[in-house]
Each structure stands twice: as C-alpha cells, then as structure tokens.
C-alpha cells in the first residue's frame, strides 16, 4: 500500500512538472484522475513491487549515479579515440562476468550499467554463469573483470531490499 502511494506521488510530481499549468481546475482534476488510473492499472498488473518502484534503493542510488556518470564520460572518450583512428583500433572481446548481486534488481542495474558505458555491452544474463559481455577492446573486458562496478552494484542492495525481494517471490 505504501508503495502504491509512493508511485502516486512520483506520478503526480511528474504530471505537475510536465503540465506547467496550475490555474485551471478541469486540467488539475483530469491530471489527478489519470494518475489514479495509472496506479490502479499498475496494481492490477501486479507490478507495484520492489522492482516496479524500488524505493528501498534510497540514497545509495543517488551516490551511485555520479560515479556511473564519470565512468560513462571516461568510456565515451576512450571509444571516440578508438573510432577516430585511420584504422579503428578495436579488438572485440567476449567475457563472462560473475554477478555478485543477491537480487534480480541488482543484476539488472549492473547489466544496464555495463551497457550504458560505451565500449562494453551485455548480451545475455544467466543466473548461474553470470553476464555475457561484449567489449570493444581487451582493456574494456579486463575492466569488467576487475569487478569494480560489480561490487558497487552489489553494495546498492540493502538488507531491506533483499528481504522484500524474497517476500515478493513467495506470495
């Protein structure tokens, strides 16, 4: 229930920021109605859980994003330099990264972080074998194997998130 309220607050905030018209009663009520309808549909679809509205991530994700942003900028510069050579300086490498995360949400965040950094691309997620990563260069693949991002994504998962994930799995 609290999660549905959180979703409603986020939807209402998005609606208010996008609309920009605050002195029109009809528009306001229509906006409120559509937010409620969205929450209702999400509730019926059974997606209002720790994955749909991951409120448990909290401040950890706010700390993680700036670090990820700097990694993205560094990876971009590296890929651009490789592309602009007379002969593209690439040595495509395939590698498996064993995931350290305990929940599916953590694994998805890790896989998406890998894909979001240019030069590395996750191709397949397998719970047993880990994430299959295609890298533009051997150095990039070794960067993935150093498990820096892996550890940081595992640190995102609080014990509370882990508990919620188990509760959501066993209805």
């Amino acid at each position: 229930m609290g999660r549905a309220l959180g979703l409603l607050v986020v939807l209402a905030a998005t609606w208010l920021l996008l609309s920009g018209i605050y002195d029109h009663a009809l528009l306001f009520w229509l906006g409120a109605a559509s937010c409620l309808l969205c929450v209702l549909i999400a509730w019926r679809m059974d997606v209002v859980d720790h994955e749909g509205t991951p409120l448990e991530l909290g401040w950890r994700i706010i700390v993680y994003w700036p670090w990820l942003f700097i990694e993205i900028v560094k990876a971009n510069i590296d890929v651009i330099r490789r592309l602009l050579r007379a002969n593209p300086d690439i040595s495509p490498t395939l590698v498996r990264s064993r995931t350290m995360q305990r929940t599916d949400l953590g694994r998805v965040i890790y896989a998406n972080s890998i894909t979001l950094t240019p030069g590395t691309l996750s191709i397949d997620i397998d719970d047993g074998k880990g994430i299959l990563v295609h890298s533009l260069s051997r150095e990039g693949a070794e960067g993935v194997l150093s498990d820096d991002m892996n550890r940081r994504c595992a640190a995102l998962e609080s014990d509370r998130l882990h508990r919620r994930a188990q509760e959501d799995q066993t209805p």
Binding site: I72, V73, N76, V79, I80, L83, I90, P92, T115, L116, T117, P118, G119, T120, L121, I123, H134, L136
Partner: peptide
C-alpha cells in the same frame, strides 16, 4: 552489429 552498437551508444549517452 555488436561493435556498431558500441558506436551507437556514444549517441545515446554523452
């Protein structure tokens, strides 16, 4: 296509 996706992700991110 895999290496091209790396180039395309420059457009998507930075």
């Amino acid at each position: 296509v895999y290496t091209r996706l790396h180039a395309a992700s420059i457009t998507d991110t930075l």
